[in-house]
Nucleic acid binder design. Structure first.
Lengths: 362, 362
DNA sequence: GTGAAAGCGCTAACAG
DNA sequence: CTGTTAGCGCTTTCAC
């Protein structure tokens, strides 16, 4: 069973090791101190570039040489042990690593954390409660500075008990407990923006194909749609709001119903539905955007940017969600719309492509 | 800078804290020892369930009670400080968190690591060399057990110098230095499988739309295509191999060229090209799979499973790549095809959907 | 069975 | 300017 020893290890054991000394016993601060003929304190000072204590140039050089030749590498564990506080931020996700674009939450969190000198400790729990508990437990044991608790789609969530033992902020989800810090996409604004793209091109009869499954996105986007209409002085017509399962098949299936409404434009709950709708429309011999203008939601790159014609849509700001999450966790919110209830609603920017064209007779 | 104290913290400071004592000073082993009236050594023993030293039932109970009431939580830093070895595995990625499906590498690595008691420390470097150095540096300082170095698409890569200071394995990439451990998808087998799907349905004249950009995938899939053909006794015809940029537009653009070849089936370099080809074929009034059978590569969920008709394709085993990576790192390879050169080639399983139909006159 | 004591590698006063 | 000296929280001999 223990194969590989051969292929992997044998190749060139005799090669010279100029850079990496054969550290049988990892080099410590003390080793450096002895080599440089100074005390550990001094070494510590030069390693950490403390400006408070001035070190003689000559000494500093000796120490740095020793560090280089010995290949010294500080032990972060020891460092955080004494300082009491680690430089970790935990990210527990119920599936962001699994989902296509939600991985951006990780990316955003990682970038922002890094920017402030923190490393990301991640755990994907795939919705498994026990695993989740363990993961949080583990993070607590590593004395994380705080935990980001995120879900792969925007929804309400319960707060796992152990989470409360650390500072935490919910990302892409929220709690019904007042005052809980959270960062979520601004669905209402997103729905408004999507509708405004259509409105802006002169469309007045605009359908909205909503999702059948309940979610903050469902309510929020609908509300945004209504707000945009109202602001434009277009009366809201419930007849123009359809519902379908939020994927390609749902969008495709909604086609004939949609055509029944006599609209010139449609706002789809998400890009996947729009993709299905493209097929449906095409089968009816209709062309986009001339016969029907369409906008989606999510800005799911693989789809939106490459449909024919490319789809106008609204971005789900996953990267920002992650980044804003760590900012909030670290308590350095510069400006964003953190409402008084502790939840920040992140803007969903519109991205216009060519699936919308001006209405001939505005 | 220290805003937020208000919105986030104020809400209910007076609530009873039954579970979470107001630990002004985190509970330590010593605290527990004192509370239980035993020594720290004893507490350590019961915490770690050492079977060697038998503890009196009565003592054990006292200790466990103290642990519970004090809300004791071991300090992993201290633990690894003394043991010298941490339970971390580092994953540095040049963009897997960014890319739709490659996030599965993280997922697979995380699951497997967790299974063996390791936590994942990740860093997304977005191809930034300096950041990459820093990230590896950081991981080294945290005394990671080893590092997984991964790329978001399968390619050759250079080994960053600091990486050599730790155990490491390349994931989804490989080095030209012999003996370097790596885990990559088996492109050749994948190309073979894709072609065999078509062959299996009776097709003989099969085109292959390859990518224009050089990559192991380009060579491997082509080789697989040829091998499958040969095995089926179908002569290889260079005329049937086209090339196009590997995205929707490329696939779309290759349509007329393809139709020129008089084939009944086509194997596309990836799903995105297949998606574009669908549009092109449709515009020519052709239907899939009747007029043209098509298979893709990648099994990019959002696309492949929801095209009309759903696309037969071959999976890029990202999850497995990540999982196999940690297994190899930990040195517990059970069986997989780890060739003698230290690189494991992971199988790319075919997933058949309905974009292929049997040829009328086989 | 259980306690005392010596460190793991590093930082932080406080002397000199 | 630099060395001494305590620990940080935990594990681990080795006595009692």
């Amino acid at each position: 069973m223990s194969s590989m020893e051969n292929g992997a290890e044998v190749p060139a054991p005799a090669a010279r090791a100029p850079k990496t000394p054969e550290r049988a016993h990892p080099v410590t601060l003390r080793d450096v101190a002895e080599a440089a003929g100074v005390s550990t304190a001094t070494v510590s000072l030069v390693v950490n570039k403390k400006k408070a204590a001035r070190i003689a140039e000559e000494t500093r050089r000796r120490v740095q040489d020793a560090i280089r030749t010995l290949g010294y590498r500080p032990n972060a564990m020891a460092k955080t042990l004494v300082s009491g506080t680690s430089r970790f931020i935990g990210l527990v996700a119920d599936g962001v690593a699994t989902t296509p674009f939600a991985g951006q939450i990780i990316h955003g969190a990682q970038d922002e954390a890094w920017k402030h000198g923190y490393a990301l400790l991640i755990a994907n729990t795939e919705g498994n409660g026990e695993l989740e508990q363990d993961a949080i437990q583990m993070m607590l044991e590593y004395k994380v500075r705080g935990i980001l608790y995120s879900t792969w789609f925007h929804r309400q969530t319960d707060i796992p008990a152990p989470l409360r033992e650390a500072g935490f902020v919910l990302v892409n989800c929220f709690s019904n407990e007042p005052g809980t810090r959270a960062v979520v996409p601004d669905e209402v604004q997103g729905g408004r923006s999507a509708t405004e793209i259509l409105l802006g091109h002169g469309h007045r009869k605009i359908a909205f194909i909503n999702a059948t499954i309940p979610a903050p996105a469902k309510d929020g986007r609908l509300q945004g749609y209504r707000e945009a209409l109202e602001k434009a002085g277009v009366p809201f017509d419930p007849e123009l709001v359809l519902e379908a399962y939020p994927d390609q098949e749902g969008g495709y299936g909604a086609t004939s119903d949609l055509l029944t409404r006599g609209v010139s434009a449609v706002f789809c709950y998400n890009d996947r539905m729009a993709m299905g709708l493209y097929d449906g429309l095409r089968e009816h011999g209709l062309s986009i955007p001339d016969d029907m203008a369409v906008v989606g939601f999510d800005n799911q790159e693989v789809i939106a940017a490459h449909l024919r014609p490319p789809l106008s849509t609204v971005s789900l700001p996953h990267y920002e969600l992650g980044a804003a999450g760590v900012r909030m966790l670290l308590g350095l919110d510069g400006a964003p719309g953190t409402a008084t209830d502790g939840v920040a609603r992140i803007n969903c920017p519109a991205v216009e492509r060519t699936s919308v064209r001006a209405q001939a007779h505005a």
